[in-house]
Design a protein around this nucleic acid. Structure first.
Lengths: 345, 345
DNA sequence: AATTAGCACTCGTTAAAAGTGAGTGCTAAC
DNA sequence: GTTAGCACTCACTTTTAACGAGTGCTAATT
């Protein structure tokens, strides 16, 4: 167990290092107003903290920096919640200023806002398709056998696909089919939609002996495609990475920026996160080599208890956890409220 | 006017420098099989070329590198067209392999393909909205006064917007309105669409004395929004920048990568380009400070003579112009063929 | 007159050497 | 238990020296 003084010193080291990115020496610490004891005492305590693995020195004659364990301890025990500033509160209000009807735009806006708030890079994982339920399906026949299929989920998410049939689909046929499909399929989870859609079309076809083979085939292809597409990832404040002193070296910067561009890898990395809690992973805890010098703060967002996606903040291990956590908490609130408005169930 | 030997030397310098990124010395050049004269002669010729401003030396005891003027001369007079390799031809075919119905996906795919082909960063400017003409408009009323409006252009581009009315719009009213709008508005350029749409709704309303004020108001807002949105920019191969030796320094890399993330700035920069020709801008010719160390190869793409957008390649000034130009020419062809297939007029 | 060999000179690059100072760990005194 | 004092460490900076690729000029050669 740590003494109060050790806690004070550890916190001071982490705070200072987060602010300056420079190893913190005993003399520097002894000058702080909340430190009443001498630098020699601090050195002794530091030696103990180092033995416990909470801090380390880059080399013999440098000050101390927090180890990953140190950051972990800091995050778990030493963070003092800090309320947001008036400016930020105002910025949050601006998200509300005019409702954004499209979830896509809302998500993008949120990613940008969060990165503005924190000066870190932001990732927002769009809603997972599979979990969502169908609200409405629309078929729009165009010229030359081209059909646009519009799909609206209960969360208010709209997307469209264009498909090409060998023969034109008449407006009437489309209308009849559509009415039937909507009646029977509303509420179907998208994960099951493809199967049930095909089944339904087949049944419809036998009842009306209509020429819908082509349609069902095309739909099959399209919906398969769709299933393969993973949720979109929106990025905000990519350029913020450049400002971090630890990423002035291209060798350090490159893997992070490269990873960020790879939607798939990012998805795999961000996707599995539990609960509604905020999850913080530090350095090697990320289990991704490219992020071994980064920390990630994650939060799930959900509407009506249904988990939809992830909001994440990525920065150096030396990131301002306090600010990050606070920002993500507050934005999460606002964001979910807006999402709720767009939902259709 | 340059002598044949000077041309040979200049070309050799540029070719060599493009390949190695190292200043080219007279001794190195004299070893080439196509050089029959001595290094002293080369030095003399180099001195002349330098006087003409075509090459320069980074410092006294280094070899020569092409100046911007040198690159310009090389691009204008010395490039030898070089046909693409079988692998690349195959890669081009793969674009055809299965038609992509959505222009958006097609454009993204093209950006990726082009960057794979060239190992440079690719920019593709999506079609300009204003120039396109309306093919079809669809209103899909959902629950709670929510309406999805789907807009299909003659180029086969589909997009949707969600709007929120104060009152629900009945399916019948929507259907009647839609039929009318499509009859009168098909072929309208999107730049005029908003005005004509409002006008049409007003007329419809007076004829049928229906309650469409709210709709027209909402439409107004939505379409205004839409107009503000500039064409999308798709990026491919951003990570390729990291491989260029000239961008190993963060200070050099940063402005380029930052610019690339700024859709607006990019749009302003890429948008004005004339004709159907290929346009190459080198270094300061770009008129953008962030690109003073870059060269850009641009080509307009069009369907049926209507210019739609821009395909661009961005790399260091020391880029492989030959390969770049060839790749962009060939891909442009294939890309336009695919676009043509998706068009609806 | 054009070409080439020869050579002194330049200057960035690399390596080794010396000096600097922030910070530590230990010991002895308080 | 705390602190003052001091020798020690080691990254960082500066200095110096050696290196070598490449140039420009001159004189000899074709």
């Amino acid at each position: 167990m740590l003494t109060d003084r050790q806690l004070l010193i550890l916190r001071a080291i982490v705070d200072d290092y987060i602010k300056t990115a420079q190893p913190v020496g005993s003399r520097t610490l002894s000058k702080r107003s909340d430190v009443t004891f001498s630098s020699a005492t601090i050195r002794n305590e530091m030696a103990d903290l180092e033995e416990m693995g909470l801090i380390e020195k880059p080399h013999t004659s440098a000050g101390r920096i927090p180890s990953e364990l140190g950051y972990r301890f800091y995050v778990d025990h030493l963070i003092r919640p800090e309320s947001i500033s008036p400016q930020e509160a105002k910025a949050l209000k601006s998200l509300f200023a005019h409702s954004v009807n499209e979830n896509d735009r809302l998500i993008r806006h949120t990613a940008d806002l969060l990165s503005e708030l924190t000066h870190y890079t932001t990732l927002v994982l769009g809603p997972k398709e599979e979990g969502q339920r169908l609200h409405h399906l629309e078929l729009i026949p165009l010229a030359e056998g081209r059909v646009v299929i519009v799909l609206v989920t209960e969360t208010g998410h709209v997307e469209h696909k264009t498909l090409q049939l060998a023969e034109a689909l008449s407006r009437e046929a489309a209308s009849r089919l559509m009415e039937r499909l909507n009646q029977t399929l509303r509420g179907t989870p998208l994960s099951q939609l493809r199967l049930r859609l095909l089944e339904e079309i087949r049944r419809f076809r036998s009842e009306h002996s209509e020429q819908t083979t082509l349609l069902s085939k095309a739909l099959d292809i399209v919906l398969t495609d769709q299933h393969e597409e993973r949720p979109l990832i929106y990025l905000g404040g990519k350029a913020n990475m450049f400002d971090q002193p630890e990423f002035q070296d291209v060798a350090k910067l490159r893997p992070v920026l490269e990873l960020i561009e790879q939607q798939e890898a990012l998805f795999d990395f961000l996707s599995p996160s539990l609960d509604n809690q905020i999850l913080i992973t530090i350095g090697s805890e990320n289990n991704v080599d490219a992020l071994k010098d980064c920390s990630v703060i994650r939060a799930h967002y959900s509407v009506d208890g249904v988990s939809l996606g992830t909001l994440a903040l990525i920065g150096p291990k030396r990131m301002d956890y306090n600010r990050g956590i606070n920002s993500i908490i507050h934005l999460l609130q606002a964001f979910q409220t807006e999402l709720r408005k767009n939902s259709l169930d």
